[in-house]
Design a protein around this nucleic acid. Sequence first.
DNA 1: CGTTCAGTTGACTAAGGTCAATTCCCGTGG
DNA 2: CCACGGGAATTGACCTTAGTCAACTGAACG
Lengths: 194, 194
Amino acid sequence: MLDKLKVYCKLIVPLTDNELKLLDKYFEPASFDKKDYLLTDGNVCNFIAFISQGAIRHFHVKNGVEKTCDLSFDNSSVTDFQSFTLGTPCIMNLQALETTTVFVITKKNLTELYKECGKYETFGRLMAEQVAQRATEIAMSFSSDKPEERYLKLIKSHPDIFQRVQQKYIANFLGISPESLSRIRNRIVTKRKS
Amino acid sequence: MLDKLKVYCKLIVPLTDNELKLLDKYFEPASFDKKDYLLTDGNVCNFIAFISQGAIRHFHVKNGVEKTCDLSFDNSSVTDFQSFTLGTPCIMNLQALETTTVFVITKKNLTELYKECGKYETFGRLMAEQVAQRATEIAMSFSSDKPEERYLKLIKSHPDIFQRVQQKYIANFLGISPESLSRIRNRIVTKRKS
DNA sequence: CGTTCAGTTGACTAAGGTCAATTCCCGTGG
DNA sequence: CCACGGGAATTGACCTTAGTCAACTGAACG
């Protein structure tokens, strides 16, 4: 059942079959319906969840308004990294956008796993590096790309995103209003025709 | 001479005096004049530099236009994290904005340091976490704050920034044109008067 | 003293935000 | 199975704000 997770880990760190078996011990499967929350703000995030299948929206609330920070799909990990590492209450919410199955490891279990197999330490550091890279990518895109460019990049990297995620969330993630996204899309198809 | 660096390290990881002495062996001092480059794009970044005193601008070039991604001052570290960890050519440039003294550790030396004292491994992971956190902070600010808010937050966290950094770089970092920053500043002083 | 470049200001343009009305789609309940 | 209700998406009108281009000012530097 943890097959996809194992493939994922193997890609990050070279691991023997025996080492991979450890995952069975420390990860727990879980499932969420559409609109369910994996994490709500104010709580401490004590887990990392690997998405086997599904879609998850990361958002925080500012002045009563939701701000979608990221969208995660199959074969990626989600957590509130800061809360997880520092043990502080998180400001992030993680919500399933469709029926989503995940494998979860708690911080406690991860610590155990580190002890049992040192190679997973490297795994931990590389996870941090991935988070850093993803955040850098998003920040750079915001600073150098116009909304239209961000939209184009997004559909290029996730062609099926409009089938899986409501447009208002995509707009929110792109940092624009739903109306603007609608207009941008319109503009682009019109351009293509002419 | 490495005093500030030692204080910095001690804050991140508890280290004995003997362990701190290792830093003398592995870090090299260096100095840069205003406008000097610590790193230019296309090269592999094989170092981490701790800024003892000075200011450094991070920028990348897109379509011939410079995009300032971050500004770093005293008591912080700079590197192209991705290039450093993966050994790939970097797209970032690091430029001194004033006379800047740094302590530099090469990747080779860092590896040595890891070997000689395991505690510094933790240091490495925490560095990655810091990078992740900083990038997340910048990304979130872009997605939820208007330019004016970002400006206000910036002067709040760095009240002396306008004395140290040219306004055009600040504008660029905020993701707006120099003219807009000028107008925003104008708008705010006018507001304050009324 | 003149050159250069940063910063400001003005006029105009372009693009996104907001609000409201309308249409579309989907799920629910009768 | 159909009709209805409600949220999502689109569209239009108007507003606000940033971008752009150009002119001007002022300070730093040789």
